[in-house]
Write a protein that binds this DNA or RNA. Structure first.
Lengths: 140, 140
DNA sequence: TATTGTTATACTCTATAACTATA
DNA sequence: TATAGTTATAGAGTATAACAATA
């Protein structure tokens, strides 16, 4: 993959991320990061704050704020770690699971509409790339 | 493309954008947006501030700041509009073209390294998707 | 002494509102 | 009166530094 293409990919991601961020403005007061954290716990099960920070590539103090806000919404609760008094498990509530189910579609609406307008071949490309992009994003 | 995949794509873009942003920290004091604006003018030729704001999906006051900073670096200069005293053309300097040529590779290094570690098939997927993602990002 | 997490604080990026100048 | 651009200000999101508690 030539340098020009990599640069183009980077530019596309930056611009798409800015446009996607807008779609959260009028929403249910959860931003993209908060939704990502919630989704991760829903997928992976209970995690500690520092595990979450590492997974989302954020600093622990930033994660503290994200967790605080999700707790205020009643989407997360904390459970003590059995052997380490410093740590705790961040757990998804049932309200969160219902929320995720109810809003996943709405949150992706902007993207869904535009993807639907693509050609069949383009949609196949995007679809295959989704898995690869996810792996890239999670890489160390 | 099912809603789950669209949601996954959204999450991947958000996380990738956050990780890419870090790669600019120690760099030459140009952030992702500034680089995108510079690249666009280099590709498309002179544009007015409001054309740039529309193209990058930003508000005009935000674009004013981006242009200011790029001018401070000597990467942009302004030329009067021939028929409208309110507008002006934002033009790429030679220094900017040299800068783009010299740093494009370095700026994409984080992504380049990770893409290079993918399988041949994955790289093909990402490559095809780059065009589609770019089109998605530019859509109205 | 090292690690986990929080508090306090500051920085970056972008937005809205109000303004000026030109059309 | 409408449009292009700027200035002033605010807010969201994330970082660093310093701290407390536990290992």
């Amino acid at each position: 993959m030539d340098p020009q293409t990599v640069a183009t990919l980077r530019a596309a991601i930056v611009l798409l991320a800015r446009r996607l961020r807008h779609q959260f403005a009028g929403d249910e007061a959860l931003n993209a990061t908060e939704m990502a954290v919630l989704g991760r716990i829903a997928r992976c099960g209970p995690m500690t704050p520092s595990q979450l920070a590492r997974a989302e590539h954020m600093r622990p103090p930033s994660m503290t704020k994200v967790i605080d806000n999700l707790k205020k919404h009643g989407f997360l609760r904390c459970e003590p770690h059995p052997t380490d008094g410093r740590r705790y498990w961040v757990v998804c509530t049932e309200a969160a699971e219902a929320f995720i189910a109810a809003t996943t579609q709405a949150r992706s609406q902007w993207l869904t509409i535009r993807v639907a307008d693509l050609s069949e071949a383009d949609r196949r490309d995007i679809c295959s790339a989704t898995m690869v992009l996810t792996r890239l994003a999670e890489l160390p």
